[in-house]
Every structure is written in structure tokens, then in C-alpha cells.
């Protein structure tokens, strides 16, 4: 096909223009100087941080990819579900930690399950109210609805949640300082306990998900629906139930990710807390091949590493841009993603 040749040519041309502009505008010092001034000692540390960040992206991306797989819908409100999860974790911490000196592990368990449950409920509600009535409408209307829901949650929760000063979970509970670990085998590497716990927990959740999707009857039904929605319905699968379960799982994963990230990093929470992680996780899902569950995990990890590589290279300002650059390149050169399958439009 001519398309591939043309796109490669276009890509090379774009790259050439970019390098030329970089040189002309002096954005980069000469390459060699630049490489010499990098802090190579930090590279491995940043890659490890990237993998940990990536595990969060992977969890959110799973929600995007599962919903897309079943409904062919980009659930723009997913980032807002993540945001709500972080706030719920914060409120649970505030209520239980200050007043009762509760066991820290019990509290963390309550936080993660609390935000998972609330997020799952929110996800299902969104699907019921906004997406289900439009299931047979053009995809663009559903997309606009999703944007509307996302805006609505962001803006209306601004009125309800505590916004000034922006709350941070670590003000209430900061469990992981105590279990900071040094890793003697690898020399200078340090793992914050929080990040380790975060990484471990996300791996556990991914394994549980994998077991669910491949080994249970509901999981099989889910795969059938994502393969062919209408045929699955004709084969006697309760499609609405499958969609509901998909939203429950996807939103719960987002809730878990939000709780872990907000607890480990202590980022101040605002109602746009979910915006960028949401979009980046979406990019991760596209990178891995949207609709593909292992792809989302792979994409999430790659995304996290890529982002922290940019930080390592000294372009902290551009760390949010890297996601979109990756997105544009993936869509231009391999729109189906790394692990996705191809689809051809019939004339």
C-alpha cells in the first residue's frame, strides 16, 4: 500500500523540520555538550520511578481500554472518576485518622476499598444516566456526552469538595515515611516505601484482573462482547450486565490508582486532579492498542518511563507534553497501537 510509504516519508520530513527548528532556535545546546551535562547517575533511579508512575497509568488505562473494548467509547469522564477516588480517600483519612487513632494498615485498607467502591458506583451511575440512552446514537454524540459529563463532574464538585486550601492526604496520614527502604544490592537506588507498596498493589490488581478476564465466565462474556457487541447479545449474553461490570471494574481500578497515588505522593487535590493523568492514561491505552488489556498495561509502563525520561533529560517543563507527542506519533504511524489488531473499512 502507498499509505505506509507516504507516512514514513511524512514522518521523516516532520522529524527533519523539527530538528532543523531545534537547531535554528537554539532550543538544545549542541548534542555532545548536552549529553555530557546529563546526570547519568540518576538515570536508573528515574527509570524505576517511571515504572512506578507507569503502574498508576496502567491501572487507569485499563479502565479506558475495557470500556472502549466493550462499547467503542472513549470514556472522557474516567479521569474525573479517578479524581473523585482521590477525594474519597482523603475524606476517609480525615474522618478516621484524626479522631480515632486507628491502626494505619486498617485505615489504608479502608481508604483503598472506600474509594474503589465509591468510584465503581459513580462509574455505573454515569453509564446508566449518560451513556446507556445513547448506545445506538452516532459515536460523536456519545463522545460529546462524555465530555459533558467530565466537565460537569469537574465543575460541580468544585462547589462541594474542599478546594481552598487544596487538601493533601499526607497531611492526614503519611504511612510510608516509616518504611522507607534502601536497596543495598543496587548501590544508590532508593525506594520510597510508598512507591514500592503502590507498585506491588497495582501488580496484584492486574493479576486479579487477568484472572477474572481469562478464567471466569463473566470475563469470557466480557471478551465476547468486546469482540462483537451485537452477536454476543444474540448469543444470549446479558450485554447490559457485562457493560455494568466493565464500568465497575474499570472505575474501581481508577479509584485504587487514585488512592495509592494521592497517598504516596501527597499531591494537593483539586477537581482537575484527574484531567492530566486521565488523558495520559488514555494515551497509554492507545499506545498499547486500545481495547487490548495487556496493551494497556504495557502502554502505561512505557508512558511512565517516557515521562520521567523527559524529566531526567532536564526538560521538566515539557513532561506533560510528551504524552501528546507520543499520541500523535502512534496515531500517525500505527493507529492500532503496539498490541492492537487491524481493522479495514469495507467499501
Amino acid at each position: 500500500m502507498t499509505d505506509r510509504g507516504a507516512s514514513i516519508k511524512f514522518g521523516l520530513a516532520a522529524l527533519a523540520v523539527f530538528v532543523l527548528m531545534a537547531w535554528v532556535f537554539g532550543w538544545f545546546p549542541p548534542m555532545w555538550e548536552w549529553l555530557k551535562t546529563r546526570n547519568w547517575g540518576l538515570l536508573d533511579q528515574q527509570i524505576i520511578n517511571g515504572v512506578q508512575l507507569g503502574s498508576i497509568y496502567a491501572l487507569i488505562a485499563l479502565g479506558y481500554t475495557m470500556v472502549y473494548g466493550v462499547l467503542r467509547l472513549i470514556n472522557f469522564a474516567h479521569g474525573e472518576v479517578y479524581m473523585v477516588g482521590a477525594f474519597i480517600a482523603y475524606y476517609i483519612a480525615e474522618v478516621w485518622f484524626e479522631k480515632n487513632s486507628i491502626n494505619i494498615w486498617l485505615l489504608l485498607t479502608m481508604m483503598i476499598f472506600g474509594s474503589m467502591i465509591v468510584c465503581a458506583a459513580l462509574g455505573v451511575t454515569i453509564e446508566r444516566i449518560a451513556y446507556r440512552p445513547l448506545r445506538n446514537a452516532p459515536r460523536i454524540s456519545i463522545l460529546i456526552t462524555a465530555i459533558g459529563v467530565s466537565l460537569f463532574l469537574q465543575q460541580s464538585l468544585l462547589l462541594v469538595f474542599r478546594v481552598s486550601p487544596p487538601p493533601s492526604i499526607t497531611e492526614q496520614v503519611n504511612p510510608f515515611d516509616r518504611i522507607k527502604v534502601d536497596w543495598p544490592l543496587f548501590g544508590e537506588l532508593t525506594f520510597a516505601g510508598g512507591q514500592l507498596a503502590m507498585f506491588g498493589m497495582s501488580i496484584v490488581l492486574m493479576i486479579v484482573l487477568w484472572w477474572f478476564v481469562t478464567r471466569t465466565k463473566t470475563g469470557r462474556a466480557m471478551r465476547a462482547v468486546s469482540h462483537d457487541f451485537s452477536t454476543a447479545a444474540l448469543m444470549g449474553i446479558d450485554v447490559n450486565k457485562v457493560v455494568t461490570i466493565t464500568f465497575i471494574i474499570g472505575s474501581a481500578l481508577a479509584g485504587a490508582a487514585a488512592m495509592m497515588n494521592a497517598t504516596a505522593l501527597g499531591t494537593p487535590l483539586k477537581t482537575d486532579y484527574g484531567l492530566l493523568p486521565g488523558v495520559k492514561a488514555f494515551v497509554a491505552a492507545v499506545l498499547g492498542g486500545i481495547g487490548n488489556i495487556p496493551g494497556a498495561v504495557l502502554g502505561g509502563f512505557l508512558m511512565g518511563v517516557a515521562e520521567l525520561m523527559v524529566v531526567w533529560a532536564g526538560y521538566d517543563m515539557y513532561r506533560d507534553a510528551v504524552a501528546f507527542v507520543i499520541l500523535i506519533f502512534v496515531l500517525l504511524f500505527k493507529p492500532t497501537g503496539l498490541l492492537g489488531s487491524t481493522a479495514v473499512e469495507k467499501a
Binding site: I74, L143, F282, V283, V286, D320, A321, F324, L327, I328
Partner: peptide
């Protein structure tokens, strides 16, 4: 090369890149 929701996300991404730059 893109249509529908993919194009939407690319244009969204372009907007963000401009803002970040």
C-alpha cells in the same frame, strides 16, 4: 488518516502541546 474520536484526541493533544510550550 484519522477520523472520529481518534482525531478528537489528537486535536485535544495539539491544544495541550501549544499550551505547554
Amino acid at each position: 488518516r484519522l477520523r472520529g474520536d481518534y482525531l478528537a484526541v489528537v486535536t485535544l493533544g495539539f491544544g495541550e502541546i501549544v499550551r505547554i510550550i
